[in-house]
Structure formats: C-alpha cells, structure tokens
Design a protein around this nucleic acid. Structure first.
Length: 938
RNA sequence: AGUCACUUAGCUCAGUGGUAGAGCACUACCUUGACACGGUAGGGGUCAGCAGUUCAAGUCUGCUAGUGACUACCA
C-alpha cells in the first residue's frame, strides 16, 4: 500500500471519529478491567446558544490530551460532555425569533407556550457546539451527555434550593440590585462589566434651603435621579456645611422637602462636598438611607423609563430623555450652576452592554458566608483544589472568597429552572421540591409559583455531581462512586469566581467532598496583535476555519504547545509549522511502509518487559507470584526461553534511538503529569523530527531499502517500524486523527503490545498501551557514541558547505582519535560515508594530511581533516578556523575567569568545578589544535 | 486606588541559580527515489533599566519604566 504524497487531514477526520464513537471507545464501559483506576473530567459546559471559539478549542484540547493518555494507560476513563441552558441568551434569541416570525412578544403567548418555543429552539439549534466538539476529536462519552435542564439535573437544582432555604442560606429580600433594563432582569455582580465613558458630564445642581436664601450645590452624573432624592448629605466635619445640617431642602421640580444630613460616607474633597441621596437608585445611597431611615423612592419602571413617582412632567420618559429635561428645567429655574466634562466608568450588562440601572427590587439571594467558609477551609486544610499554575490563581481565588458578598440568584426570565417557591393567598412563602409537596404543606391548592428562574450558574455549580446522577433523592450512584471527585478541571480564569468556586462550595456542601483535585487555568488566546478577541473588534479567529485550513491535529498541537498558563498571541505561522509536522509524520510513515515487506511490529527488542509478559502468559501462574525484577524470576525464565539476546544484534543507531525513545516517553509522561503541555509537545516534536527522521531513518536507510529480502533487512525494517509505532502512540493524545489513520496502515501489532483492559485494542490506537518509557532502556553510552558520530558528520558537512564542495563530489575524511572513538567510527563507517558524502574514512592516532586540507576539532580530543587539493580556498579556510578558534577562546576565557575566582573554587559544588576544569582542558586542547592547523596553512 | 502578571533573536514564545533555546522569518547551497508542508550548513540576543543578595543572576530581592489583567470605588 502506498500513501499519498502529502497528508490530507479532511479524509482522516471524516472517518475515525464516527468509528470510535460507534465502537463505544469513549465510554468508560469499554474498559473491562474490574480493578482499573478511574479517571474523570467534566467539560465546562458551553452555552447551548454558543458556537466554538478559540478558548474552547484550547481548553478542549488540553482535556482531551489528558483523557486520551489516561485511557491508553488503562484507566477507566470518563470525559463528560454537555451544555448549559444559558438563560439570558437563549431567552433573547427565542424572543427575537418570536418577534421576527410572529410579531409577538413572550407576554403575548404566555409562559407555557414560550417554553415550548424555547425547547423547540434548543432542539433545533442547540446542537451547534456539540457537533463542533465532535469535529475537534474530543473523546467524550456521548452516552452520558448532559444538559443543565435535563430532568435529573433540574431535580438536583430544586433539591439544593430547598435544602439551602431550609438552612437559612437562601432568603428573599428587597435590595438594590444590578438591573439590566433591556433584558429586564437582575444580574449578579459577576455579570456586570465596566465601560469607560470619556464624554461623560458632571452636572452641578443648586438646591434651595428652606427659609433661607442659601442654596446648596450637589454634583451628579445622573440628574434624573434627583426626582427620587430623599436627602442631601454632607460630611459632619465639613465646616462649610456644618450649620446647614438638620435644615431642610425644598427639592426643585417636586413639591417635596428633604433633610440635610451628615454622614461619614461623604468625601468633602470631591465635587462640592454635598451629595444628593437617592436610596432607590444607588447602592451607596441605599446604605446611607438605611442608616438615616430615609424613604426609598423608586422613580423608574423596569425598562428604565420614569414612573408616576417621578411626576407628571417626566412619567414615561426614558432615563436619558428625563435627564435632559431635568437639566433644562434647572436651567430655566436658574438653578443649574455648571456642567463639567467628566470621564466616568459605567457598569454595563455583560451580554448586551446596556447601562445597568441600580434598582430596588425583591429578589432571592444566597448567603455566601458559610458556603465560603467551606471552600476556605478546604484550601487551608489540604491546599485543594490545587491550581495550575498556582501563582497567581490560588491567591486570587482566596482573596475573592474572603470578600464574598451574597449572590443574587433569581432572574426575571422564563427559560431556566423556575424557583421552587409558592405563595398562598396571603403571600406566605412555601419552598418545596414540587407543587404537590407545596400543596400538602400549605393545605390549599390555591398557590402561585414564583415567576422567576434561577441564575444559570446556580445549576452549573452542581455540574460535577448532578451530571453523575445526584438529585438529592438518589445520592449514591455508581458513577458518583467511581468518578467523583473528578481528577482535574480545565478552564479559563474568567470563571474561577462564577463557576469554579461555586462548584467547590456546592460539592463540599452536598456531596461532602471537593469536586476536583486539580484546576488548570489556561491563558487567553489573543489575536496576532496581542489584543483580546471580541465581537465588537471583529478580530476573532474561528477554529473551524483553522481546522479546515490546517487540520484539527495541527491546531491541537498549536494550542497544546502554547498552553503555558499565560496569554499568547495567535500565529498562523505556528499552525503552519505543526501542519508541516503532521506532514512530516505522514511522510516518514509513508517511507517506512514503502519498505515494510517482511517487517512486523514487535516491541521485544526494545522492551524486555514485553517479552516477560509473553513468557508469563505461556508459563502460567507459577511465575506470576514472583517479582519481575527478582533474580529468581530471571533465572527461572532464562533457560526455558533461550531467546536471542536482542540487544547484541543492535547497531549503535538502534541502541541510540531506543534510548531516545525511552527518554522521550519518560519525559512526556512526566510533563503531562504536571500538566506541562508545552514541554510534552516540544519533546515529541524534537524526538520525531530531529532524532527519528533526520538521523535514525537516514542512518538505517540503506539497510532497509535493500532490494533483496534477507533476515537482516527485515529485522531492521521491523525495528524502524516499531519505533515509528511507539512514536505514533506517544503522539496520539495530541494528534488523534493522523495517528489513527497511520496506525491502521501499519503491519499488525503483536498482541502483547495491547492493553489488557480493552478487547477492542487491536482495532484502534486510542486503546493501545501508552508507552511509559523505561529508565533501564536509556543507554547513555550509546547516546554519547552516537553524538560523536553525529558530530563527525556535521563537522564534515560544515567543511563541505563552507568550501562550496559540490554535493556530487566525494571527499575523503581523515580522523585522528583515540582507540575507543576509532572503534565507534569504524563500526559506523558505512553510515558516515553516506551521510557525510565521503569516499573514504581514514582512522588514525594522529592526523597526517596534505596542507590543502580543511580541518575541524571534535569533542573527545578528536580531529578531522578533509583533503581538498585544488578546491580549498586558503584564505577562507583560515577565516573559518579563526572563527572557530575565537568562539572557543571566548568561552575559555569566561570559564578560566570563573576558575580563577577563589570563591567559586571554594564554595561551588565540587562536581561543577571539576566539570568546568574538564571543559577548559578540552577547549585548550581544541584551540591548540586549531592554532596548529592555522600555522600549517601559512 | 489596590493586587497581580508580563518585558529574552526581526516576530511569536520556551527557559526558576552554573557554557542563552525553539518555531517562523533571514542568508548560502541542494529538485539526493519519504517529505520543497523538504534537506544541509549558517547569521542573528550586553535576556526592559538601575541597584542589591550570591563564588555565580535571564533565573532570587528591591526600585524605575512600559504593557496587560483583575478587584474595589468613582456624587
């Protein structure tokens, strides 16, 4: 079988996902090992109205990398998927559609009909993001897909509400809240953002003092609220106003009289030092009002138009129109002192950017003091959840908890979980799980349910356990026992408060345990100019476009490579480089497959433990009780199985690549265990491209491309294809599609390489054993010998390049080296000749070459010379040697200075000093050699 | 205002005490039977600035400057 010349991602992406899903590979049930440890992760539920953006793609990639690796390692793995109901945005969309299609408002059709439309909308359009999740290749268990408004999850919401109410942690009250006049609902503090308004104005209004000619001037940015003023406040220490305290203001435009009061809250330095107090329309004024027993005059409707209380002149006007009119009237009355330009910051609705109106209304609140203590104690007690990176997130999280205020949980919407509270004819509240329960408790059928729904985050807060079956009634499901607490949460820092902290609190409160061990907070994907992506700036990058252009795997690699916890600017060039990497993997495999006749994938030559496993299976139980490392065990199996010692048949290149492979596997596992995705990607990239493609394949090329079949050739083919197979496994969590596509094309993988937990393992790489790497297979001697060979080849190539030797011209290489190195070079002569384009390799103790030679020094005291009669440019060669010499000298000087430092020699660790001394000796030897070579040119 | 992060090659970023790294871009050569989405060999950085701790600082401490984020307040 021959592969196409270049990797075409679309093909692989269109077939494998379906096949994985159909075979049930994503469900934990695929794991048939009854003793398997569990690994679980829940997706931060995206909005049902949403579509995939780069932040999702990043987050999802990281979760999938972790999940796929754990699954391959034999964990019983659950990656739970689902979306939340997004109360506000869904309601907005459905309302918009209703208006467009039927010219009706929600009120026109009523709550029940509206809910019908909303569900229909959800069923029709709500699948956008879930389909995109399939496109990303996420190995999520679709059989456990959840929605926050599922029956069971809704039941959990009611249960939690009822219990918290019962304990007095939920209450109803009239407070100043953040009101969005467009959505006509209250919002929590966290859903309010700030916007700077540069062209704001500060209005100075004069209020006449009763029975006096005096006027007191107040400064305000919102003159229309003066219609609801119920006092003017000054600082008690402010000498200017001391004698006015206790007097009365005749409030213009109204026929009301309001007192002048003293309150510490007033900053005498700001504005005029006198503040109008509007308790119903400002949170600070509200507090002042409570302290002084002031009336709360609400002058607005829920759409921010003025109501009757504002007076006949203003009723029905929008707040901004009312503002103009108030200012006009003050001007007419000559009570407008002045208008200053004033830059100010306005609170706006996070979703629709409408300016928030502080509004006095009756809402449901969740008390956070005791909830917060649960989370604080957990951190103090066991440092959980552990944030990655710990700095700065842990501190931010703790500080926020410490200053936490009560949470407004009701919303004036229909789409969502209707608050499980009923009112009887007398207005008594009955909080119950169901209407039946409420009726029973109230003793009457005549009950009205609270019209409001709960904040979407209230249900998201239960996500870690409601998704696993908890609903208050059922509290111990198999899934909860197996998968809770989840292992790790991957999310962005914007929702540490909105979601992470609340999940911790509810988890502790209702399950009695933390919802997750670790929390990975990833950075934000910025545009190429380092700006945040936003709809208003229209600088967003659609992950789907990137998938289409470069492939899903390349995108995943890019995101994983960038995941260091801090923000990063998106670069198309980077995806391009990983697209190239995917193509490199494709072509390396293509080459191996072109030379794969007679080859088999067999791990035994690189991992004796795999052999042991096979032997154990053959010999049966008697050996299973013995430790594999035990000498008795080894003695017992050796004579029975006189397998060749495979290591003795291996070339230096083989030993070297086996060592590199094991180092890579060890490193990748280590990196992923500490959630260092960047390190894992870099390790894999350089192993595959530099070690495997640039060196190993080149070193064994002649051997595996031999046209005549023979045992040696086929063994070499097996080795190269096995290394390749192992590499694909290591890459699979990052690049699932490409690796599956290629893995399917490899010769059959021997059975002992599969994971016992999965009966489907032979059909898919995603259920193959993930290579852990074996420290015993790391061969430092082979690595250093190979390094010498690489050094020899590279230096020769350098000479050839610098001297402009045509690629077709072969040159001789003379090497001076010690006996050990000579042996290494001699054994690898064929490869050296090929890769250095040399005609002959002369090995000696010393160099004896014509003057017309280019030379270089190697590590370990070796030197090389390339005779270039008629080709050498002596001036250029001098310059080249000079350059090398200068570089070495600079380093040597630096090190010698360090060694000359008494303090260094005395205080630095001895091995450091010895290392430096050795390096200095080598540099001296090499510079001497270079000097002699230079002399010889003259 | 407070808290925090960031500042390393032209660009995007790794690198937490011991000889400055990667990818892209750049230069030269190469259409060599896996790959031009490629190969080979190169050039390029007083690690924002200043001071300190240390035998030794890109790395630790303090200050300064710039950039960004978050929290609170803003009559």
């Amino acid at each position: 079988m021959e592969l196409e010349k270049a990797y075409n991602p679309a093909e692989a992406e269109s077939t494998h996902y379906k096949s994985w899903e159909e075979r049930g590979c994503f469900a934990p049930e695929i794991n048939e090992n009854p003793n398997a440890e569990a690994f679980s992760i829940v997706i931060p539920p995206p909005n049902v109205t949403g579509s995939l953006h780069m932040g999702h793609a990043l987050q999802h990639t990281l979760m999938d990398v972790l999940t796929r690796r754990k699954r391959m390692l034999g964990y019983k793995t659950l990656f739970l998927v689902g979306v939340d109901h997004a109360s506000i945005s869904t309601q907005l969309m459905v309302t918009r559609a209703l208006k467009k299609d039927e010219h009706k408002t929600p009120q026109d059709i009523g709550r029940e009909a509206f809910m019908g439309r909303a569900w229909a909308w959800k069923n029709k359009y709500g699948g956008t993001i879930t389909n995109q999740i399939r496109r990303e290749g996420l190995s999520v268990d679709w059989s456990r897909e959840r929605f926050t408004m599922d029956e069971n999850l809704s039941k959990a919401v009611s249960e939690v509400f009822v219990r918290l109410y019962g304990e007095g942690w939920i209450y109803r009250g009239k407070r100043i809240v953040n009101w969005c006049p467009r959505d006509k609902t209250v919002l929590s503090d966290l859903e309010v953002k700030e916007e700077t308004k540069k062209d704001g104005k500060l209005f100075y209004l004069q209020y006449p003092v009763k029975n006096s000619d005096a006027k007191i001037t107040v400064a305000t940015t919102r003159p229309e609220t003066m219609l609801g003023d119920t006092a003017v406040a000054v600082n008690p220490k402010d000498e200017r106003y001391k004698n006015l305290i206790g007097q009365t203001i005749e409030l213009p435009l109204t026929n009301r009289e309001i007192p002048i009061i003293a309150d510490e809250y007033v900053d005498a330095e700001f504005g005029t030092g006198a503040v109008k107090i509007t308790p119903a329309h400002d949170p600070n004024d509200y507090e002042v009002g409570l302290r002084h027993n002031l009336e709360q005059l609400n002058v607005m409707n829920d759409d921010a138009t003025m109501n009757e209380t504002a007076g006949n002149d203003f009723v029905g006007l929008d707040r901004y129109a009312a503002r103009e009119k108030v200012v006009e009237k003050f001007d007419e009355l000559s009570l407008l002192e002045k208008i200053d330009d004033y830059e100010m910051v306005l609170p706006v609705c996070e979703r629709c950017k409408t300016v928030i109106e502080p509004f006095l209304s009756e809402q449901w609140f969740c008390r956070m003091d005791e909830m917060r203590d649960l989370a604080l104690d957990l951190m103090k007690r066991e440092g959980a959840p552990h944030f990655y990176p710990q700095v700065p997130h842990e501190k931010v999280y703790m500080t926020w908890l410490e200053n936490l205020r009560d949470w407004t949980i009701s919303r004036q919407l229909w789409w969502g979980h209707q608050i499980p509270a009923w009112y009887d004819e007398n207005g008594n509240v009955i909080v119950a799980r169901t209407k039946e329960e409420a009726v029973e408790r109230a003793g009457t059928e005549n009950l009205t349910q609270d019209a409001d729904v709960l904040d979407t985050w209230f249900s998201s807060a239960l996500w870690s356990f409601s998704t696993l079956g908890w609903n208050g009634e059922t509290t111990e499901t198999e899934d909860l026992k197996t998968f809770h607490p989840t292992d790790v949460l991957v999310t962005n820092r914007d929702i540490i408060f909105l979601w992470v902290s609340r999940m911790v609190m509810t988890g502790l409160k209702f399950i009695g345990e933390k919802p997750f061990e670790d929390v990975i907070i990833h950075g934000t994907v910025l545009d190429k100019n380092g700006q945040r992506m936003s709809k208003t700036k229209n600088n967003g990058i659609d992950p789907l476009d990137v998938f289409n252009k470069y492939g899903v795997d390349a995108t995943r690699m890019t995101l994983a490579d960038s995941a260091t916890g801090i923000d990063f600017a998106w670069r198309d060039e980077k995806v391009e480089s990983f697209r190239n990497f995917a193509n490199k993997i494709w072509n390396a495999t293509r080459f191996c497959l072109l030379n794969s006749d007679g080859a088999q994938v067999d791990y035994s030559f690189i991992n004796p433990k795999a052999e042991v496993k096979e032997i154990k299976q053959t010999l049966g139980d008697e050996l299973n009780e013995l430790d594999e490392e035990d000498e008795e065990f080894l003695d017992k199996i050796k004579p029975e199985f006189a397998f060749d010692n495979p290591k003795e048949n291996l070339s230096l290149a083989d030993k070297w690549i086996i060592s590199r492979l094991n180092k890579t596997a060890v490193q990748v596992n280590k990196s992923l265990d500490k959630y260092d995705f960047h390190e894992a990607v870099q390790t894999l990239y350089h192993f595959f491209w530099d070690d495997f493609c640039d060196w190993y394949i080149e070193l064994v090329k002649d051997e595996i491309t031999a046209s005549e079949p023979n045992v040696k050739r086929d063994a070499a083919r097996s080795r190269v294809i096995t290394i390749l197979e192992q590499s694909l496994r290591l890459l699979h969590p990052f690049m699932p599609f490409l690796t599956e596509e290629l893995w399917q094309k490899l010769p059959e993988v021997s059975s002992d390489l599969h994971n016992d937990a999965y009966k489907n393992a032979k059909q898919t790489i995603m259920l193959a054993d993930f290579p852990m790497g074996d420290a015993a297979m790391i061969d430092e001697q082979a690595e250093s010998e190979m390094q010498a060979v690489i050094d020899l080849i590279s230096k020769t190539r350098n000479i050839r390049a610098e001297m402009n030797i045509k690629p077709s011209d072969r040159t001789a290489i003379h090497v001076a080296a010690n006996a050990d190195l000579q042996k290494v070079f001699n054994e690898n002569q064929a490869q050296i000749l090929k890769l250095a384009r040399a005609s002959e390799l002369n090995l000696n103790e010393t160099l004896d070459v014509p003057r017309a030679s280019a030379k270089a020094v190697l590590a370990g005291g070796a030197e090389i010379a390339v005779p270039l009669e008629g080709l050498i440019d002596f001036a250029k060669e001098s310059e080249r040697l000079e350059n090398q010499s200068n570089k070495l000298n600079a380093e040597g000087e630096r090190l010698k200075n360090q060694l000359a430092n008494q303090g260094f020699v005395e205080k630095a660790p001895p091995e450091k000093v010895a290392g430096l001394q050795a390096r200095v000796a080598e540099i001296e030897q090499q510079t001497n050699a270079l000097k002699q070579n230079l002399e010889a040119l003259k």
